[in-house]
Design a protein around this nucleic acid. Structure first.
Length: 879
RNA sequence: GGGCUCAUAGCUCAGUUGGUUAGAGCGUUGCGUUGACAUCGCAAAGGUCAGAGGUUCAAGUCCUCUUGGGCCCACCA
């Protein structure tokens, strides 16, 4: 057996142990019919990604689940991979070639794509390396990439199937257009943000009476050049006799009509709204309804186009200023009011998006959403915490069609082909490029320029990673996966769509549980982001405190579904805990006779032979195990972590080890301290994989990782709540004695005897029986407890040598007040007993409630009886 | 406009279908380093559980309202 060095060194051990596990294939999983499968697919990070705290939290949670289930004997697979992240990656590579003075257009499509692949080759596994530093026990040889050849096949397959089912169509719509990225964005990719803008009031003269005007209000005056009508509410008396009349659109000098539509809000602005069907979604709808012209006044890059006349080639915002100047000059600008407005922003580059009319590909979502709503409503898929269910359902029930085409180069190219010969007459949708046109037979065939939205590949992740559409063994065994662990911001992007895809293509849900964790924020509640400069880099924390410290601290503050507020100091807790584990283990190793290692706990002793201290710690251990199991099964990671923390540090180290110190060579103590340590290590392992493994491998003196050790079994017979209760009273007494010693300023070596008398024989005996050990407690060396104990903890009689002293510990005891308190407690206990009796007498309850709950209630009832008796004894004593 | 969420110690937060004396970490203060651990130990101070009302034998926990934060969704030009 090796001795442990005086201080744990994370840097040294982490890489060594991770390599050990990888070399021994401990992370790999394959179908095994004798075992229950447990699988998680990683939310694939962007290839451009670098590890941030969000990843650290997300992946630590997954790793805990995987390691826990693996130890429980389930065939546990954590499927890793990365996402090609269309726009993000293209942006990165564009930036990199810009250093050579190149634009992607200079290279051309094929050459540019080559550069992207080259970039991916070089930097694409950064995030993977970083996940390994985190201790993630993924089955790395399986690593998938959404642009892999095999994966791409699945994407094509899906497109074709949906098209053939009539669920994919092409159409002209107002979409969110990013003029910088020059691509369409889905609604989810264009979040609205508040802006301080202006509301401009423009005067449009009437054709028949050029001195009369209709005033319209707009936030985007540059779009006026594309106006093809002005709309008013038919109920609006102000405009009633103007409907149908013609206006002259200033600057453009075009004639436009005044139309009436109920969509117009009379209260907003002037009640008259300019209609620009090509540049606004509402106006587009009006345009369709009233058969207006669609005049597009912008180039895709946001500059004004030839329809804008004199303003051609100006940037949209520049044009706005010039147009306002010109209108002002003509006296057609009535006023400008400051106005709070919200506008969509590109989620990648934060440019204000332009609602833009263009031809795009869409997926009809309603038919896909139906089954996905059902699955959640019927409870086949459960969200943790529950409240996300509602968010999900709200969105699904009002789902809009999904714009899936993007005008970028990096991504899955849309499998749609056109024949040059019979142009526009039809499209050919095919997984592979056809040799000739099926209509005219011509061979001059070209592919649609657009690529698919990145999410169009990631929504297939839970089955495409297993080789779908092939019916692989992996797919059969590991699908549906068990739990999805992700952040709330991608419920719509990803989670909902995966559910739809799973049900559509696999005819089965993709996962049964969805655990949504909080967002990692800084201590001021701001989202951590590079631009704010408030980032705490997990890799820095790993360097400074160790991976285990990072993981433990993160988990211990992650209450289910709450956002995580972080500052660096939080990680000290994890580091200190690691240190504690290390030192306790070191102490035990120093004092352990190796002969006891192999001893079977149950064979070695009878429970009745153990003293209360050992009985207590064993009972506590198994109670903790039970709690941790429950917490992990219900995704309460912080509670599991904190339960373990408190048990290990404040019960096992602070009390148990201190109490057995004087008699540490006693075989009972030897076996129990060793067993509790080694089982605790196993339980701590999912949270702190490295330090537990390092200690374990030395404890057991064998070349085997703790990760393949079984998760401890609960031994119900060793759980003894009564003993736990007794012990906690006892510890309370000892604590009180310590306090008393301080207050009396009794030097450590003074002989003190506390006389304890009690009507509770059991406790008295307990204290007497324990006195040997209590006597030996650290800093209580010469304390001997003899007899007197009263129920009232705050008062003790102390004998110093032969001098009797009665000392109220916490100030003088107010008997009247104390009586009142006791009476209140009695009242409360009686009330509770009544309620419990009623509950246990209720047949409905007994029928419905799980056995466990009933047992718990019964135990509580018994306990209450004891409490009541005790309270009454105290009451009598006070009289 | 609709929905969600939060308010508990100086700070950051736990608190499991209502039930024993409301907890932790950090910070503050005092005492303690003779072989596990100063990345430590023992203790102290610090709470009208945001406010008001209600249900109950019993409310931090359930209901209503008020106040003040945060987040998401939505077609206010």
């Amino acid at each position: 057996m090796n001795e442990l060095s005086s201080r744990y060194n994370p840097a040294e051990t982490e890489d060594k142990l991770y390599k050990f596990c990888q070399d021994n294939n401990l992370f790999s999983a394959k179908p095994d019919p004798t075992k229950k499968p447990f699988s998680i697919v990683i939310p694939p990070p962007n290839v451009t990604g670098i590890l941030h705290m969000g990843h650290a939290l997300n992946n630590t949670i997954q790793d805990i689940l995987i390691r826990y289930h693996r130890m429980k004997g389930e065939e546990s697979l954590w499927m890793p991979g990365t996402d090609h992240a269309g726009i993000a990656t293209q942006n990165v590579v564009e930036k990199s070639i810009a250093k050579e003075g190149l634009k992607r257009q200079d290279l051309g499509r094929d050459k540019f794509i080559e550069r992207v692949w080259a970039w991916r080759e070089q930097y694409g596994s950064t995030i993977i390396h970083q996940l390994k530093k985190l201790g993630a026990s993924c089955d790395w040889p399986r690593t998938r990439f959404t642009m892999d050849e095999e994966y791409s096949k699945a994407v094509m397959e899906v497109f074709v199937r949906l098209y053939e089912k009539g669920l994919i169509y092409q159409g002209n719509y107002i979409i969110n257009w990013c003029p910088r990225c020059q691509t369409a964005l889905s609604d989810e990719e264009a979040p609205h943000r508040e802006l301080n803008g202006n509301l401009y009031y423009l005067k449009y003269p009437l054709k028949s009476e050029p001195d009369n005007f209709v005033v319209v209000a707009t936030t985007r005056p540059e779009t006026m050049l594309g106006d093809t009508a002005v709309a008013v509410n038919p109920k609006d008396k102000r405009y009633k006799n103007l409907v149908g009349k013609t206006l002259i659109l200033p600057l453009a000098n075009r004639e436009i009509k005044i139309i009436a539509d109920a969509m117009v809000d009379m209260k907003f602005g002037t009640g008259a709204v300019k209609v620009t069907p090509a540049h606004d979604p509402n106006d587009y709808a009006l345009g369709k309804k009233h058969h207006l012209d669609f005049i597009n006044v912008m180039y895709p890059d946001g500059r004004m186009n030839e329809s804008a006349g004199d303003y051609k080639d100006m940037d949209r915002f520049e044009a706005r200023e010039v147009i306002l100047e010109d209108l002002k000059e003509k006296g057609l600008l009535e006023k400008i009011e400051p106005h709070q407005l919200s506008a969509g922003h590109c989620y990648r580059c934060h440019t204000i998006i332009e609602p833009y009319l263009s031809k795009q590909w869409f997926v009809k979502m309603k038919p896909l959403a139906g089954p996905a709503i059902e699955a959640v409503k019927k409870g086949k898929i459960k969200f943790y915490p529950k409240r996300w269910t509602k968010v999900y359902l709200n969105w699904m029930e009002d789902i809009q069609d999904w714009c899936i085409s993007r005008q970028i180069w990096w991504g899955h190219r849309i499998p749609v082909y056109y024949c040059k010969n019979c142009k526009d007459k039809g499209v050919i949708v095919s997984k592979v490029k056809p040799d000739k046109c099926p209509v005219c037979g011509a061979t001059d065939i070209y592919q649609d320029e657009d690529v698919l939205d990145t999410w169009f590949s990631s929504w297939l992740w839970p089955f495409a990673t297993f080789g779908w559409p092939e019916k692989s063994d992996d797919l059969k065994y590991f699908y549906p996966t068990s739990t999805l662990v992700t952040a709330p911001e991608i419920i719509f992007f990803w989670v909902a769509r995966m559910i739809m895809a799973g049900l559509e293509f696999m005819h089965e849900i993709p996962f049964s549980d969805v655990y949504i964790h909080g967002t990692v924020r800084d201590i001021e509640g701001k989202k951590m982001s590079k631009s704010l400069g408030n980032v705490i880099d997990p890799l820095d924390i790993i360097k400074e405190y160790g991976t285990d410290a990072l993981r433990f601290s993160l988990i211990s503050i992650t209450a289910q579904g709450q956002d995580v507020f972080l500052n660096k100091e939080r990680f000290e807790q994890g580091r200190n805990f690691a240190n504690k584990i290390w030192n306790a283990s070191r102490f035990i190793l120093m004092n352990l006779d190796p002969a006891y290692i192999k001893t079977d706990l149950c064979v070695f002793f009878k429970k009745e032979d153990l003293d209360i201290v050992n009985r207590w710690i064993l009972s506590r251990f198994y109670s903790v195990l039970k709690e941790v199991n429950k917490d992990l099964d219900t995704y309460k990671f912080n509670e599991a972590a904190n339960t373990l923390y408190t048990f290990f540090w404040h019960e096992f180290c602070d009390w148990y080890l201190e109490m057995i110190k004087p008699d540490i060579k006693n075989p009972h103590n030897q076996v129990v301290m060793y067993k509790v340590l080694e089982k605790s290590l196993r339980m701590l392992h999912p949270f702190m994989p490295f330090i537990t493994d390092e200690i374990w491998q030395r404890l057991e003196s064998k070349q085997e990782s703790i990760m393949v050790a079984p998760w401890p079994h609960i031994q119900e017979e060793l759980i003894d709540k009564k003993t736990e209760h007794k012990m906690s009273s006892l510890l309370g007494i000892v604590t009180a004695i310590r306090k008393m010693r301080l207050e009396l300023d009794i030097p450590l070596q003074t002989e003190v005897a506390v006389i304890v008398s009690s009507s509770n024989k059991e406790i008295r005996e307990l204290i007497e029986g324990l006195s040997e050990q209590v006597k030996n407690l650290a800093k209580l060396n010469s304390l001997e407890i003899k007899t007197k104990y009263t129920h009232i903890k705050s008062s003790f009689t102390v004998i110093m040598k032969d001098m009797h002293l009665t000392i109220p510990l916490a100030g003088l005891l107010d008997v009247e007040k104390e009586k009142e308190k006791i009476q209140a407690r009695i009242h409360q206990a009686e009330g509770e007993i009544k309620a419990k009796e009623k509950m246990l007498g209720n047949k409905e309850f007994l029928k419905k409630a799980p056995l466990e709950v009933v047992e718990k209630e019964k135990a509580r009832l018994l306990e209450l009886g004891d409490i009541l008796k005790r309270l009454e004894a105290i009451k009598n004593e006070l009289q």
